[in-house]
């Protein structure tokens, strides 16, 4: 049995003439993984297969060590799901609804009330808990949706486009909450989005889907991207003075992409500090500092082409 949170082998699913998923192989070992892809790439279908809501035509998928096709109900006890579309009962209060969902997920009444109180506090709806959902803004509804998905302490929560329809402030708060799930509350996260920044801010790994196939799987923070350990640095101001300052600190500097500098050193440990100090000495503005090689965005764009 695989130790991965999600392990899929050769998963295919067809709806009529459309191949929604084609021979998908996937292994999710990270605590938070982003599922990236354009609309229609197969993200929602893959999530529904993971939830056991639809059976794949071919292949197998194990989630938390359970076969999603054969033991979907057993699996769903350990999963939380936040769908993309609006799916909350508008005539109920947030507190009533979250308590209700906790009980439907098997929690006894007292525990359900306590847990609902905790999760509503965690998602920032403590004050509004007694208001009808129909009076909520989009952001508050999304938070209620997130609260119902985590009220039973799932091992894995599946979030389908959680930032959809949110304004910039609401989006920021939602991404912060999602990050907390995996990093503070110890809940594994599988989040879909078509916005790279959302995935980069919240996840440890990314799976890129294109036309129902996995186009790329990689960690978000991939150090030493080109294997050299060098840094790509970009500054505003006197680049010559900055070069000289780096040389004085024993760093090797060559020209990088698009006017940037590639900085390398024998001892990679103090390299970031040396670049910072060099920028301060040369009085230049440091506006890019990252491992050399193609960025996450570059890699994803290349994979999508």
């Amino acid at each position: 049995m695989s130790t991965a949170i999600i392990g899929a082998t050769g998963v295919s699913k067809r709806f009529g003439a459309v191949d929604a998923l084609r021979d998908v192989d996937l292994e999710m070992g990270h605590q938070a993984v982003g599922l990236l892809g354009a609309n229609g790439a197969g993200k929602s279908t893959l999530m529904r297969v993971i939830l056991g809501l639809i059976r794949p035509d071919a292949g197998s998928i194990e989630v938390l060590g359970l076969d999603a096709s054969r033991r979907p109900w057993e699996l769903r006890r350990r999963l939380g799901y936040m769908p993309e579309h609006d799916c909350l009962p508008l005539g109920m209060t947030a507190a009533d609804f979250v308590v209700h969902m906790a009980q439907v997920r098997g929690l006894p009444h007292r525990s359900a009330v306590l847990r609902a109180s905790q999760v509503l506090f965690q998602v920032g709806l403590d004050e509004e808990r007694s208001r009808l959902i129909r009076t909520f803004s989009v952001g508050m509804r999304q938070r209620t949706n997130l609260a119902q998905a985590i009220v039973h302490s799932p091992d894995l929560v599946i979030l389908d486009e959680p930032t959809n329809g949110l304004d910039p402030a609401g989006r920021d708060e939602m991404l912060h909450l999602v990050r907390r799930l995996s990093h503070e509350l110890d809940i594994a996260v599988l989040m879909s989005s078509h916005v790279l920044e959302d995935i980069a801010r919240t996840c440890d790994g990314v799976v890129l889907l294109r036309d129902g196939q996995v186009a790329l799987t990689r960690p978000i923070e991939q150090r030493e991207r080109d294997g050299s350990g060098a840094l790509q640095v970009r500054v505003s101001g006197d680049v010559g003075a900055f070069r000289a300052a780096l040389h004085r600190r024993g760093l090797r500097v060559t020209d990088g992409d698009e006017g940037g500098l590639l900085v390398a050193a024998d001892d990679e440990g103090g390299m970031h500090d040396a670049v910072r100090d060099g920028a301060a000495e040369a009085e230049v503005g440091l506006y890019e500092l990252r491992p050399a090689g193609p960025s996450l965005e570059d890699t994803l764009i290349e994979a999508m082409e």
Binding site: L51, L53, W73, E74, R76, R77, L79, Y81, P83, H85, D86, C87, L88, P89, L90, G91, M101, V104, R105, G106, Q148
Partner: peptide
């Protein structure tokens, strides 16, 4: 009717409820 209108069925059927 409210479960269908508000699309709450998606949530119910994503739990262990058949």
């Amino acid at each position: 009717c409210p479960d269908r209108r508000d699309r709450v069925l998606t949530l119910y059927f994503s739990t262990a409820l058949t």
